[in-house]
C-alpha cells in the first residue's frame, strides 16, 4: 500500500506553512536579487545598452571593447598585483601575529584590541588616514627628510608605478587583524595534546607549526582565503578615498571601472560586461570551494 494513497494526508504545500511564509524574504532575495539580478546583468552585457538598458544583442562586442580599453587592462593588472600581494601578506602577517599571540602572553586582550580595531573602521576612513600619512609634503616622507635623510623618497600615492602598494599598505592595516583573529581561533581549536606530544617527542616549535599545526588548520586557511579573495575583487571604497583612482588612472580597479561606466560614462553595456568579468573571477575561486564545502558531504 503506497503511503501517498492514504486518506487524510495533508497537502504537501501547506505543511510547514509558517516556515515557508517566514522564508519569503529569503527566497525573494536569493531568487530575484541574487540569481535574477546576476542573470539580468550577464544577459545585458551582450547588448549595446548605453544610457538605458536595451535588449539589442551585439554578441561579445562589449567584451572585445573592454579588453581593448587600456583603463580596464590597468585595473586588471592592479587587481592582480594587489590581490596576490594582499593574499600573501595578510596570510603571513596574520598567521605570525596569531602564533605570537598564542605564546600564552600577557595583555593578550590589549594586543588583540589594537590589532583588530582598524577592521571596525570603514575603507573610507582607512583610505583618508593613509592618504594623509603618505602625503609627501607632510607625511612619512617629509618626516624622514627632516631627520636628515633629504633624498628619501616615499610618495606612493603620487607615483603611478607604485601607487597600488600604497593602497596595499592601507588595506593590510585594515584587514590583517581579522586574519589574525581567524588564525588565532584556528590555533586555539587545535588539541592541546598535539603540543604535548610534540614536546615529548622533542620536535622544535617552528617545526611543529610548519609540519603539524598548519596542515591541521587547512579549513581555517581555506575559509580565510575565500574571505580575503572575495574582499579583494570588491575593493572599491579604499581606492576612491585614498587616490580616486589616480594619479590619472594608475590605481584604477575593476569595481571602480564598473561604477564609472554605469553611472558616469552612461555606457551600461561596458559596465555590465566589466561586472560580468568580475563575476567570472569570483566564480573561479568560489565554485571549487563551494563544491568542497557543500557538495562533498551532507552538512548538518
Amino acid at each position: 500500500m503506497a503511503a501517498h494513497s492514504q486518506p487524510g494526508r495533508p497537502n504537501q504545500l501547506f505543511r510547514n506553512l509558517n516556515s515557508k511564509i517566514a522564508s519569503i524574504p529569503m527566497i525573494l532575495t536569493a531568487v530575484v536579487i541574487f540569481l535574477g539580478g546576476t542573470i539580468w546583468t550577464v544577459t545585458y552585457s551582450f547588448t549595446n545598452s548605453k544610457l538605458l538598458p536595451r535588449l539589442n544583442f551585439v554578441g561579445f562586442e562589449q567584451y572585445e571593447r573592454l579588453w581593448d580599453t587600456p583603463r580596464w587592462i590597468v585595473s586588471i593588472q592592479n587587481l592582480a598585483t594587489y590581490g596576490c600581494l594582499s593574499l600573501i601578506f595578510s596570510l603571513t602577517i596574520g598567521f605570525l601575529l596569531a602564533a605570537l599571540m598564542d605564546q600564552k602572553i600577557r595583555f593578550e586582550n590589549t594586543f588583540r584590541t589594537i590589532f583588530l580595531y582598524p577592521f571596525a573602521l570603514s575603507f573610507i576612513v582607512t583610505g583618508l588616514v593613509w592618504q594623509w600619512l603618505l602625503n609627501p609634503e607632510f607625511g612619512v616622507q617629509s618626516v624622514v627628510r627632516s631627520l636628515g635623510w633629504t633624498s628619501f623618497t616615499f610618495d606612493p600615492l603620487y607615483n603611478s608605478d607604485i601607487v597600488i602598494y600604497g593602497i596595499l599598505l592601507a588595506a593590510l592595516w585594515q584587514g590583517t587583524g581579522l586574519v589574525m583573529c581567524l588564525m588565532l581561533a584556528g590555533l586555539r581549536g587545535i588539541d592541546e595534546d598535539i603540543w604535548k606530544a610534540a614536546r615529548v617527542d622533542g620536535i622544535p616549535m617552528w617545526k611543529t607549526y610548519l609540519f603539524i599545526v598548519i596542515p591541521m588548520m587547512r579549513p581555517v586557511f581555506v575559509t580565510t582565503l575565500v574571505l580575503i579573495t572575495s574582499g579583494i575583487v570588491r575593493v572599491y571604497d579604499l581606492v576612491v578615498a585614498q587616490t580616486s583612482g589616480g594619479p590619472g588612472i594608475a590605481s584604477d580597479v575593476p569595481a571602480k571601472y564598473v561604477y564609472d561606466y554605469m553611472f558616469f560614462a552612461q555606457n551600461l553595456g561596458q559596465g555590465f560586461a566589466a561586472s560580468s568579468m568580475m563575476l567570472l573571477a569570483i566564480a573561479i575561486v568560489i565554485i571549487p570551494w563551494a563544491y568542497l564545502e557543500f557538495g562533498g558531504r551532507k552538512r548538518g
Partner: peptide, 10 residues
C-alpha cells in the same frame, strides 16, 4: 560572494 557591482543595476 557575488560582487555587488553585478547586482547593483538590477
Amino acid at each position: 560572494f557575488i560582487p555587488y557591482q553585478v547586482m547593483i543595476y538590477p
